[in-house]
Computed example of a mutant assay.
Amino acid sequence: MAALARALRALRALPGGARGRAAGPSGALALPRPLGADPHEEEPMLAAQKKNPDYHGFSAEPDVDVLNMHAVFFTGVSVAIVLGSVFLHYLPDYGLMEWARREAEIQVRERERLGLPLLTSNYYDPARLSLPPPE
């Protein structure tokens, strides 16, 4: 506990305060300057970003570019992934696989109810087939 109290006192004694507040106005961070440069020639971060803005390729204006980037990524994630997966889930039965399974289950239950074997060697009933004469 004593070590913790010493650490807190040391943080309070720092010139920037316990949370490391900057000496300049809030939101105006300074870029690092090269060694030997004049300390009065620093430019704030906002001015540096105006000179060299991040470019995402959606617009020439930096604010519109960021807004369009956020809109495109929100649309891409929410619409394409979420709604796309919902759409794929509710597509109709491709290849009638589910229908074939249900039909097979119906056929098995019907043959079990009638006491017939589930599979026979003849696909069609031979009594109903008209075969050519054996000649």
Rank of each mutant, 00 (worst) to 15 (best):
R102H: 09
G20Y: 01
A5Q: 12
A28Y: 09
M97C: 12
E43G: 05
L46N: 14
F87Q: 10
P39I: 02
L91N: 02
V77D: 03
I81T: 12
A80W: 11
Y124M: 11
I106L: 14
P133M: 02
P133Y: 03
V64T: 15
V72H: 14
L8Q: 11
P44L: 03
A2S: 11
D125G: 04
G84W: 02
D54E: 08
Y124R: 15
P134M: 07
P39V: 05
R113M: 06
S85G: 01
D38S: 11
R101N: 08
E42T: 10
T75N: 08
A28R: 14
A10H: 06
L118W: 04
A30L: 15
M69V: 02
S130Y: 08
V72L: 06
P34Q: 02
E43Q: 14
P25M: 01
P25W: 00
L91H: 00
G24T: 09
S26H: 08
L129T: 07
A104G: 10
H70S: 04
Y55Q: 10
P15Q: 01
T120N: 09
A13G: 12
P132V: 05
L11P: 04
E105P: 02
G20T: 01
I106Q: 13
A3V: 12
H56T: 09
E135C: 06
A23V: 03
D38C: 11
M69D: 07
V66G: 01
L131P: 01
